[in-house]
Design a protein around this nucleic acid. Structure first.
Length: 423
RNA sequence: GGAGAAAUGGCAGAGUGGUCGAAUGCGGCAGUCUUGAAAACUGUUGAGGGUCACACCUCCGGGGGUUCGAAUCCCUCUUUCUCCGCCA
């Protein structure tokens, strides 16, 4: 959520910046300012009424104490009208505040200056590319065929147990999956991220805190009986650790890494492009989350990007990095870098990581602040990224490492797997 | 799941209808003293709204109610603790 003060101060600049997302924010922002104005006048009317009623109450108290019940009762009558007024003004204030909040929730984050304009993923800007795309035999298979051939992932079994998009990993497939998780976590902790295990279900307040609610309500699985949501990413529980927290400057930087399964309804996406591991309802992911001082959040973002690079370099997977354009940028992000690995047999790029700076947008919802050197509370910046999302990394490994003898295991993973080929 | 107790500032812990945003202790910060540090002493120390700045308003787990007036009384939800039951 954007800060009211920022909207008040720089409305026109915000409208221009939000054009990159192809939205005309001016009606929304106007509405915000109008509601804010109304909120403040109502608030001040209410405050005055309450002040008067507080004053009378004190007088009544003193009169009763000094035995002047008669006079006190006269004053009591005067308070009746004030009570009605404050009730009415209070209701009005609440309604206005609610309305204001709901409009604020509809405004996405302001894209960073570096974010290119554009509508679709075709307008994303490739900023980096590394690794050689292997030349495969003509009979090379896509990963879902390989999974079947070597019996390491069973999609049909998942359909039987749960439904489409819930694969079952078997034997060396399961072991490879576990190896990847352990390897990612080790790399992250070596880089200074502390490992953490968090709940896989979150409450409504957490959903609002990181911005999944109300914007992406339909993307999360909701457990009605307990009113909880299955997490779509570890970002939600990990970042919400800091909801309603006031940090000291010396606490920065805060770096966490956690492995969790992720659950996404993916309503409306069907077809060939979601085959195999390309898009699932349940998948595993290792996430990195940082909380930073505003002055260093972009350095932190760069650091996260460099870190993810080292992992892909070690896995020897061909990848590229895109800076997302305004139209493709997530609702809450100010800037995002997507990592894509080349899936050779499918001849397409697969997104395997998304690293974002949310600046103060999430912090404003979370009320995540720190005391600056002047002792004033300021909003912190939050960031997160995948390091990495498992299924598509697995798809990339299976396809790019396939040989006529079987699928070779990337060297760095051999110690984690205990085998060097899947055949 | 059943029975009972509780929830107050960074922490501990007073406060059962009026001047309580809240005693006291610890911790934090600043100062005095000291070559420096410790100790001691002095002062200061929650958040939000509002204002040029004050004033003023709100917040004692969340929500609602009673009352001229609620941290204090009532209802409700949540959480924690104790006992019982169940259980990986």
């Amino acid at each position: 959520m954007l800060q009211l003060q920022v909207i008040r101060d720089k409305k026109d600049a915000l409208i221009i910046a939000l054009k990159k997302r192809n939205i005309d924010a001016s009606p929304l922002l106007e509405n915000v300012l109008q509601l804010d104005e109304k909120r403040r006048t109502t608030q001040s009317k209410l405050d005055n009424t309450l002040a008067e009623s507080n004053k009378l109450s004190k007088e009544i108290g003193m009169l009763f104490k000094s035995g002047k019940a008669q006079e006190a009762n006269i004053l009591k009558e005067k308070t009746a009208g004030l009570k009605e007024d404050s009730k009415r003004l209070g209701d009005e204030l609440n309604a206005t505040a609610e309305e204001l909040k709901s409009v604020l929730y509809q405004i996405p984050n302001i894209p960073n200056d570096l974010v290119p304009a554009g509508n679709t993923e075709d307008d994303n800007e490739e900023v980096y590319k590394e690794g050689d795309i292997p030349t495969l035999d003509t009979d090379a298979l896509p990963h879902w065929e390989l999974a079947k051939k070597y019996d390491i992932i069973d999609f049909e079994l998942g359909v039987k147990i749960t439904g489409a998009g819930f694969p079952v990993y078997k034997g060396k497939g399961a072991r490879l999956q576990r190896a990847l998780i352990a390897y990612f976590l080790d790399k992250n902790t070596e880089a200074g991220y502390s490992e953490i295990q968090v709940p896989h279900l979150v409450n409504e307040a957490s959903g609002y805190g990181t911005g999944q609610l109300p914007d992406k309500e339909g993307q999360m699985y909701h457990v009605g009986a307990d009113d909880l949501y299955l997490i779509p990413t570890a970002e939600v529980p990990v970042t919400n650790i800091f909801r309603n927290v006031i940090l000291n400057e010396s606490d920065f930087p805060i770096c966490y890494t956690g492995y969790t399964p992720c659950f996404r309804r993916e309503a409306g996406s069907y077809g060939a492009h979601v085959r195999g591991l390309n898009r699932l309802h349940q998948f595993d992911k290792v996430e990195i989350v940082r909380v930073e001082h505003p002055s260093s959040s972009y350095a932190a973002l760069d650091g996260m990007v460099e870190h993810v690079k080292t992992i892909l370099r070690e896995l020897k997977l061909p990848y590229r990095i895109l800076r997302l354009c305004g139209g493709d940028l997530g609702f809450t992000a100010a800037m995002t870098y997507d990592f894509e690995v080349f899936s050779t047999a499918q001849d397409r790029w697969l997104e395997i990581s998304s690293v974002s700076n949310f600046e103060a947008y999430q912090a404003n919802r979370l009320k995540l602040r720190f005391k600056d050197e002047k002792g004033k509370n300021q909003l912190a910046h939050t960031l997160n990224g995948s390091s990495l999302a498992l299924p598509r990394v697995l798809a990339g490994i299976l396809e790019n490492y396939q040989t006529s003898e079987g699928i070779k295991v990337p060297e760095v993973l051999i110690p984690y797997c205990g085998f060097d080929i899947i055949n």
